[in-house]
Amino acid sequence: MTLVKEQSEPEGADDKGGTEPAGDGYVPSPRRLERERHRRARTRRATAIAAASTLVTGVVLYLVVVSAPGWQRTKETFFDGQYAREAFPKVLEGLWLNVRLLLVCGAAVLVLGMLIAVARTLRGPVFFPLRVLAAAYTDFFRGLPLIINLMIVVLGVPALRLQGVTVDPVLLGGTALTLTYSAYVAEVFRAGIESVHPSQRAAARSLGLSNRQALRYVVLPQAVRRQVPPLLNDLVSLQKDTGLVSIGGAIDAVRAADIIAGRSLNYTPYIVAGLVFVALTIPMTRFTDWVTARMDRQRAQGGTT
């Protein structure tokens, strides 16, 4: 701990001007002051360059788009303020469906994915069919394009006219999403399980823990912790893909935009829906980054809390 503090001191001191006495009679040497002056100058220069570069890039992009021959027409079709105002509340209403789908499917995906991953690591001849089934499941649903999976489930299942089976496109769409994403998440979990060093399992077994106890108390907690960033990544991806349930006619944000766009022959509602999704995803992405950074920091400090 002390070591880390000492190393970070020059940086911290840098921000404050770097001349505070440490209490032990230490006075920064002229060498240090010169170094810090140089670093500050370099920082100022870097900031100025970044600002100038951003400004130039922005202006160039703007000019390229606005001077395009079809800009006037594009602007009317895609960026119409009136249609945007009309579409926004409808899109938001639809978005509520996407959020609910995300929450329910996300939870189901995590549970199912974990079960499949654990099934694939089970030893013993009794579990052979389970292992094969889990492997086949992940192979199949990872390979099957999500949109085709959705069409089969959302359009195919109602066509069977089965008694007692729902024809609700939201439920069916959610099922399809869960099927595909469980396969992805199962692989993430499996990678995590395999990343735990065999010596950890050996230590657990040597204490007399059974294979299952070793998995539950020693391997899985470490595996899950390590896989948080990729898991959140998959959840962000799932959040966007909830928009695909609209192919069955469920009115989510995308479908709401679609209705208005179809009626008005103006594409502005799609832009609105797109931006709303981005706005929803950004907090989640930032959260992912934050969790990752926090875990990296803890690893750097040697903590595992």
Partner: peptide, 20 residues
């Protein structure tokens, strides 16, 4: 084997403590 291991304690070269 689990019953046997319960009666034997092992200490490894690399400690193998559970980091979590």
């Amino acid at each position: 084997p689990d019953a046997v291991r319960r009666r034997i304690g092992v200490v490894f070269q690399a400690y193998n403590l559970f980091p979590h």
